[in-house]
């Protein structure tokens, strides 16, 4: 087990290197660079910039160098743990991403827990009460949940809250706390706001997970080992929870890995609609402004989280399923 984790961790730098090349090429791909779009913005605002100033900026960021030199310079600073300066904001990228990243992770984790806390019991109920009234109701709700885009749900909820209760439910903080430094009060304020976007983000996943759990469990419920457990004299709910539910959940554990990064990236539209201060809108703006080191850093962090997520789910899978654990040994 430890060897397995160590192997994976050794692979991490290699994977990150490969990803960094791909990310850099992608970010560089659009024609022009940050300064062309920067000048276009200035020009549309009626002002302009001195040629010397432009040259100075170019040199400062190395934009006058050939592309592979630019990449090497980026790598050099990355290897020192320096994510570079944002071209647009003229601030260290690490500061820009920092706070938003924690908010993004908090939001994703909330959405994730809401998904599992609702989906697993609902799936178990549906499967053990197949064709009951509540099973039908849950099935219909699942169809709706799967079919509704989450930004639409966000819009509907925002409208209902505004029209009916006259409250605005956008953002992760109330206006007093947006710029405030971290404090207990700010955390409480965050908790008061985070659940709604978390539900919006989690609803589609909840519906999907419920359906998968129901289907998996229905498969397992007819397996001979369930008859064996029942024939022992165990009570029905003990039979179901100890044996088939356990086996039905096992394959779901492997989805955790790709589920987390999906929540990060999937939150872009919702974050824009609900004006959440997470990484999504920052990435969007960085990409449209060709703020390439900022965009590159964010994308690289996504890649890192994806790899870590996959590692976590592989480890979890090995923990819950002895067949996989022993295969690796």
């Amino acid at each position: 087990m430890l060897r397995f984790i160590a192997q994976r961790l050794l692979l991490l730098p290699v994977l990150l290197f490969l990803f960094s090349v791909v990310v850099f090429i992608l970010v560089e791909a659009p024609p022009g660079d940050f300064l062309t779009s920067y000048m276009a913005t200035l020009a549309s605002g009626g002002s302009s910039i001195e040629t010397e100033q432009l040259e100075a900026l170019k040199q400062q960021f190395g934009l006058d160098q050939p592309i592979h030199i630019q990449y090497l310079r980026w790598m050099e600073s990355l290897s020192k743990g320096d994510l570079g300066l944002s071209l647009e904001y003229q601030r260290p990228n690490i500061d820009l991403i920092g706070e938003r990243l924690w908010l993004t992770i908090a939001l994703a984790l909330f959405a994730f827990f809401i998904t599992w806390i609702i989906a697993i019991p609902a799936g178990i109920y549906s499967a053990t009460h197949q064709n009951s009234l509540l099973d039908y109701v849950l099935t219909v709700l699942n169809y709706i949940g799967v079919a509704t885009p989450n930004f639409l749900l966000a819009l509907i909820l925002m409208w209902v809250a505004y029209a009916q209760f006259n409250v605005s439910i956008t953002g992760l903080f109330s206006s007093d706390y947006i710029q405030a430094p971290w404090s207990v009060a700010r955390v409480i304020d965050l908790l008061q706001h985070i659940w709604l976007p978390a539900i919006v983000l989690g609803i589609g996943g909840t519906a999907r997970l419920t359906r998968i759990m129901r289907a998996n469990l229905l498969d397992e419920l007819h397996k001979p080992y369930v008859v064996t457990a029942r024939a022992k004299g165990l009570s029905e709910w003990k039979v179901v929870l100890k044996y088939p539910v356990r086996l039905a959940i096992n394959p779901l554990v492997s989805t955790i890995g790709w589920y987390l990064p999906q929540l990060f990236s999937g939150s872009l539209i919702v974050a824009t609609v609900m004006s959440l201060q997470n990484v999504g809108p920052l990435l969007l703006r960085a990409l449209t402004q060709q703020d390439m080191y900022l965009a590159g850093s964010i994308l690289l962090i996504y890649c890192f989280l994806t790899i870590i997520g996959t590692l976590i789910s592989d480890v979890l899978l090995a923990i819950v399923d002895p067949r996989i654990r022993m295969e690796g040994a």
Binding site: P224, V227, T228, A231, R246, L247, P322
Partner: peptide, 16 residues
């Protein structure tokens, strides 16, 4: 009354 089930191959849970 105890049962020796029909399919011994699948009659134990594989994860216990």
């Amino acid at each position: 009354i105890a049962l020796i089930p029909q399919e011994p191959m699948a009659s134990f849970s594989p994860v216990h």
